[in-house]
Amino acid sequence: MIGLEHYLIVSAILFSIGLVGVLRRRNLLMLFFATEVMLNAVNIAFAAISHYYNDLTGQMFAFFIIAIAASEVAVGLGILIVLYKKYGSLDLDDLASMKG
């Protein structure tokens, strides 16, 4: 029988995959993909907890996370297009203009 721990472990594995992606990616578009992976992993955990505790709050949080992801993608892709027009590449090393 599948318990809550199984879902939480899968969610943790997916979250760490996304985190590794955020840390090692140098391309901005790929960085966005890794963020989506992390948001989805959190959604699985919320849905699983909602099911096993018989509580709807987890699903509500998952809905708001989906709404936030949608607006993040809309604004982020607009910024990506502006950056690509300005610099001609999406590499983070090319975009680093502040020397600190």
Partner: peptide, 30 residues
């Protein structure tokens, strides 16, 4: 996963918003 967990509406929203809208937005941006 959402359908297994009994969160039917969340699963449908996931399909429509993530797979439908967000991936279409990404492919337009690409």
């Amino acid at each position: 996963f959402f359908f297994i967990l009994g969160a039917d509406f969340l699963g449908v929203v996931q399909l429509i918003v993530y797979v439908g809208a967000i991936m279409a937005l990404y492919s337009f941006a690409m």
